[in-house]
Design a protein around this nucleic acid. Sequence first.
DNA 1: CACCAGGCAAGTA
DNA 2: TACTTGCATGGT
Length: 223
Amino acid sequence: MRSRPKNPLLEIYQQLLTRLGPSHWWPGDTPLEIIVGAILTQNTSWSNVERAIARLKIEGALSASLLFEVDEAMLAEWIRPAGYFRIKAKRLKHFFHFFMKEYQGRISRMQAQPLEVLRPQLLRVNGIGPETADSILLYALGKPIFVVDAYTQRIFSRHQLIAEEIGYEDLQTYFMDHLPEDPQLFNEYHALLVRLGKTFCRKKNPRCPECPLTLPTESPRNP
DNA sequence: CACCAGGCAAGTA
DNA sequence: TACTTGCATGGT
C-alpha cells in the first residue's frame, strides 16, 4: 500500500520556490501604485507599464484625488507607453470614480470590507475583469484570493494538469480548493508562476525545452 | 517584417 | 450563450 500522493500544487510550489527563490512581489511601492499597475498591465508587458508609472510619478499623479480629478485626455498622454492608452485612461477614471465615491479614496476603508463584498463590486467597474480585480484584492489589499493569469493557464495546461480550455473561475477554484487559504502563499505562488512563465513558458517556445519544472503527477507505478 | 505581452468589453449571430 | 474584434506601445 502506497502512501497517498501528496498535494501536487504544493509540491510544485515548493519546487519553484527552491529553484527560483522568493520573489518580493508585486512590484509597486504602495497599494495605489499596485492598483494602477494592475490596470495598466492588461495584456501588456510590464516593461511598458513601468514607463507609464514612472511618468505618473514625475507628474505627481499617483494619488486617488488627482487621478480622480485629472483630465482623461491628459492622463492618456501620461500613460501612453503602456499601450491601449485611451481605453486604459478611461478604465483608470472608472476605477477612481468608484474608489472616491465608495471609499473616499482611502485604501484602509476599502480594506475593511470583506472579500465577498469587494470582488463583486470591483467586477462591476467597467474595465476591471477577474484578473485585475483579484490582483487588486490580493496584492494591494492582502485578501486571500488566488490570481489566475495567462501564465498560470499556459504552464499548467502544457504540463497537462488542467484542460486547455479551462475558464478563469474554474482554474481559480482548482487552486483555492487545494491550497490553504493564505494570502502570502497565494502571493508568492502567483509571483513564481509569472517568473517561470516569463523565462520559460512564452508562446514562442511551445515545447518549454528548458522548463525546470518536473511534475509530481506520474508517481512511479511499478509494472 | 511578424508576433507577442501578467485583459476586457462591445459587437455579432 | 459563444465567438469575434478593437484597443496600441515597445521588445524580440
